[in-house]
Design a protein around this nucleic acid. Structure first.
Length: 356
DNA sequence: AAATCGGGGTA
DNA sequence: TACCCAGATTT
């Protein structure tokens, strides 16, 4: 017995859903997987061009598995959540070696791969293999919370369990892939976070939130976001025509991306000349010519606000304190993946020369 | 269970 | 500014 919700959703999908995306209807598990990783916590419009770029560069999972890691990161540059990229490469290589390049076809095998959790495993296994697993993403959580009028927070253990159970109960078992695609499209197009199109909605007669005029209050989230302020001062140090860069390694933002010489301060720094102890220690008495100090940059992320400036300077001799850095040609800069905070600066015209 | 991991669009 | 986005992983 098909729930009324399911029947109406599929009817809406057939008659009115015009949403088109490059990966929609795709049956190649590699392409489905790639699109799903790109789209984790990422809007479709934002991920779209990355998907096309990746498919063009790596037509099959074996192409991706063989690719140079830094080249893949460069292609991911700007998309955020860079552990996705690390896991993307790891999974491609695992499938190449452990599965002879053939994507596994069961939910459990898929979910065991790095970077793939319950949502992505459900999406891949239903789209590619017609496995009966209901997806639970932000769209589905919102639809279910509103349709059933559920005030249990979605970001709690109890909430996740409840919503997953309800999502599964609504699944259309004959065509799980089509159903899963339809419910996400429905959430994106009709049951939107803001300004949902309730008057056009085929579910409005049964929707508890609509009946109680509580649509805008659902779903409920428990945790509020806490933001941390950080000040990043980057020193772009040129030596004999080359620049010092390094790869970020710590368990921190932008892991695996490249950066210049960083001085992070617990608060704003006024004097960025050689009087700054960090810089003084770095050049260790060597003559040092400061070429420019940038404007104040600010980037708002989900959990932190980054403030900072870029200081360009030249030294004549290599700095022993930077032994573990790479010294690269300016032309090679475009081969390395940098955070947006840095590429934004690099993309802006240089200010007129100044004396310090 | 809570904290983190980016970046960008929208109201 | 606050919230959200085809979530996953670590602490």
């Amino acid at each position: 017995m098909k729930p009324d919700f399911t029947r109406k959703l599929l009817q809406w999908n057939k008659s009115s859903n015009t949403r088109a995306m490059p990966w929609k209807g795709e049956k190649d598990p590699y392409k489905i997987w790639l699109s799903e990783i790109i789209l984790q916590q990422t809007r479709v419009e934002q991920g779209w061009s990355y998907y096309e770029k990746f498919i063009a560069a790596f037509p099959t999972i074996l192409h991706l598995a063989r690719a140079n890691e830094e080249k893949v990161f460069k292609m991911w540059e700007g998309l955020g959540y860079y552990s996705r990229c690390k896991n993307l490469i790891a999974t491609a290589r695992t499938i190449a070696s452990e599965y002879k390049g053939k994507f596994p076809n069961t939910y459990d095998q898929i979910e065991a791969l790095p970077g793939i959790g319950p949502y992505t495993a459900s999406a891949i296994s239903s789209f590619a293999f017609n496995a009966p697993h209901a997806v639970l993403d932000g769209n589905v959580q919102r639809i279910i919370a509103r349709y059933f009028g559920i005030t249990t927070p979605i970001d709690t253990t109890a909430g996740k369990k409840l919503f997953q159970t309800l999502a599964q109960s609504l699944l259309h078992h004959d065509e799980p892939g089509i159903y899963n695609q339809a419910i996400m499209d429905f959430g994106a197009v009709i049951c939107k976070p803001q300004n949902p199109l309730c008057s056009d909605c085929v579910q409005k007669k049964e929707c508890e939130a609509f009946k109680q005029n509580a649509v805008t209050q659902l779903p409920v989230k428990q945790k509020a976001i806490v933001r941390k302020e950080r000040w990043f001062y980057y020193f772009i140090i040129e030596c004999k025509g080359k620049w010092y860069i390094r790869q970020r390694t710590g368990k921190d933002i932008w892991e695996n991306l490249f950066e210049f010489v960083l001085f992070e301060s617990p608060a704003a720094v006024e004097d960025l000349t050689v009087k700054l102890p960090f810089l003084k220690k770095l050049v260790n008495g060597q003559a040092c010519q400061i070429e420019s100090i940038s404007r104040m940059y600010r980037q708002q992320l989900t959990h932190q606000t980054i403030h900072g400036r870029f200081v360009k300077l030249k030294v004549q001799e290599a700095l022993p304190a930077l032994n573990h850095f790479l010294l690269i040609d300016k032309k090679q800069l475009s081969e390395y993946a940098f955070p947006r905070f840095i590429t934004t600066f690099l993309g802006e015209p240089a200010p007129p020369a100044q004396l310090f």
